[in-house]
Design a protein around this nucleic acid. Structure first.
Lengths: 359, 359
DNA sequence: CAGGATATCTGAAGCGCTTCAGGAGCCGCC
DNA sequence: GGCGGCTCCTGAAGCGCTTCAGATATCCTG
């Protein structure tokens, strides 16, 4: 009698079985106030009995014109991404925000630091996208534009008429450099993130800095150098080492190289706490004490910073807030809001035990 | 003339403009071999001109009955999840595998350690789901079953007729305990993961172990204890401390408690490398040397293990392989494959510098 | 040049749902 | 007792795409 010839039940199956219209069954799920509690109950019970799990999400999406998912575009693959606790924290907060708005997170990891493949973006089922720290000119961004999806960029260059959340990286870097300069350091090294999407890492020349395609790295280098210039330290006196990603191993390696320069740096400006932790490790291995022989300052203020030995002086950014704002912005865009001015997360110097005047 | 009244262009818009049928335009995107290269080119060009970004993913999903996404169900929130590098590595590998099959990853983080809300699962746009380390009886699993989606469980109890990837946790724990026992240790503590989904952490009594709802934790405790019994060490002699998640801070805290027991343990069995790292830290703070005064063994063999000081003895599981197999299994299920027998990832003892005979 | 294979394109039937403009009954009120 | 205003329910028009069974036209083969 029922039209269920072994196929999965649909709204119609239930409607037929209960003897009501399909619209009513739909209402039972989406607008309980539109029918009597009693009928609704009968419908739900029948659905349960027939093994109907509720309206098909895809069909619903097509009808409502919204998928209920937020796409998250990542420059790197997941593992290098998550070697940075800063991203984990911010993403957690983003996911929670988005989930509270009843939406899921569609993760599109990058390949080769270039961000996701455009084809992935073209087929992504989402009605708003968040792009996180993609290199300038990432092809994925064109794909987003083509689909005319609302976009929020995080830690990326401004795009005309595009919503944006960002940290004032220049100011943060300046804060770090000022602290170090004010302590009296004059020989300083920079331990930085990747400048451009390739697998390169190691010492960096000025040319590579100039052509950098990751905004965050570029801004921080600029902030460090401009502030150091105020202390009479020219950019050519400041060695820079570039890590592929922000993990401790690379921090250690970079610090070792920086410490082999002449004159030996008495302070290291690090673009993440993880890198800084690696640097502290390297110092120990070289028989140098921190902060006695070497001052180290990080960036982000992740939980590990306070916990380190010595506790890490660092630039704090509120990562939870960053994720929350990004999520809310995405949600608001979904509701048709206009992009509005960029939302800037403040930075703040947190002085702990890893910095001191040079001996 | 065109039917585009300011709305987004669709297949029909293009079809009308080019003067072909809608089916042909569809073929231009999905089956290039079904039309002449020349016509196809004309279609693509017109699409570009009209700002058509290709077939709408949602509509396509409805028509094809597949969404092209793999849902990933997580017990915990993202930040505690990613405090464990083991998950990051495995998830990265899973994402890469899934991406190579042209599918995206839909992330459904858990709330309160219980896994995702059933409502989130019910609305998730995906055609296969991977459940990772959910507690027994997680409501999300019922939701998956109701929707009759193919399911792969990872690090979770077997479910009848459900595909499964897992690590032999019992064997791994036994390996660890055997190593420690064989070295001659007789006073041993266990530093473990969460046993059940609540925010509790701290010392654990036998009752809580018996009612544990996380299989991984349960199995490892069982493995540790059964092997220790072989050395004549009764379960009541082995203090257990439970961490909420696997990060170093909690490892330190737990280790401090364990080291305050009488008689003081000479070895600590830790369920993750991060916990073990925290334990090493605690030992240092207590003025104990590792492995001189205290042996510490971890689990997973994450990159940090080899890098630690001293390098960590641990139980290795191939996390990349785990992610790859999970991804492939999910993909195969999508193609209609039957679940098949569970896929077990082997474990292996890796002896480094953090274990030695008791002094 | 007949007959079959090939290449190219089309019409129409879905996929499963939401939503909106009603319609039918019923209540209470003056 | 007529009428405005409820409450509860329905019919039908989409949402944008895929796919399959043809329909043509073209080509090849002997």
């Amino acid at each position: 009698m029922r039209p269920d010839k072994g196929r999965r039940p649909t709204l119609d199956t239930i409607a037929l079985e209960v003897g009501v219209s399909r619209a009513t069954v739909s209402n039972a799920y989406n607008r309980p106030d539109q029918l009597s509690a009693q009928l609704r109950e009968r419908i739900i019970a029948t659905a349960k009995r027939l093994g109907y799990a509720g309206p098909d999400p895809t069909a619903r999406s097509l009808a409502t014109q919204r998928t209920g998912a937020v796409a998250f575009l990542l420059g790197q693959g997941l593992s290098s991404a998550f070697s940075d606790p800063a991203l984990s924290i911010m993403l957690d907060s983003l996911a929670a925000t988005v989930d509270s708005g009843d939406r899921a997170l569609l993760l599109l990891p990058g390949v080769a630091d270039l961000g996701p493949r455009p084809a992935s973006v073209a087929r992504a089922q989402s009605d708003v996208v968040v792009a996180y720290s993609l290199p300038d000119g990432a092809p994925a961004l064109d794909a987003v534009r083509e689909r005319k999806l609302p976009l929020v960029v995080v830690d990326q260059p401004a795009l005309p008429d595009i919503a944006r959340v960002e940290v004032d990286d220049v100011a943060g870097a300046e804060l770090a450099a000022r602290h170090i300069g004010a302590l009296g350091h004059r020989h300083i090294g920079i331990l930085g993130f990747s400048l451009s999407p390739d697998t390169r890492y190691g010492p960096v020349d000025r040319d590579r800095v100039r052509t950098a395609r990751f905004r965050v790295t570029r801004d921080r280098v600029a902030g460090y150098l401009s502030e150091l210039a105020g202390f009479g330290i020219g950019p050519q006196e400041v060695p820079v080492w570039e890590a592929r990603c922000g993990d401790q191993q690379l921090g250690r390696e970079g610090a070792r190289w920086l410490m082999s320069r002449e004159p030996r740096p008495t302070a290291l400006l690090c673009m993440s706490d993880e890198l800084a932790l690696g640097a502290i490790r390297a110092a120990g291995e070289l028989g140098l004490s921190v902060p006695g022989d070497l001052s180290v300052i990080g960036f982000d203020d992740t939980p590990g910073a306070a916990w380190a030995d010595p506790p890490l002086t660092t630039i704090r950014q509120d990562l939870v807030e960053k994720g929350r704002r990004t999520g809310e912005l995405a949600l608001r865009l979904l509701d048709g809001a206009r992009p509005g001015p960029p939302s800037t997360i403040p930075v703040e110097l947190v002085v702990r035990g890893s910095t001191a005047p040079p001996s």
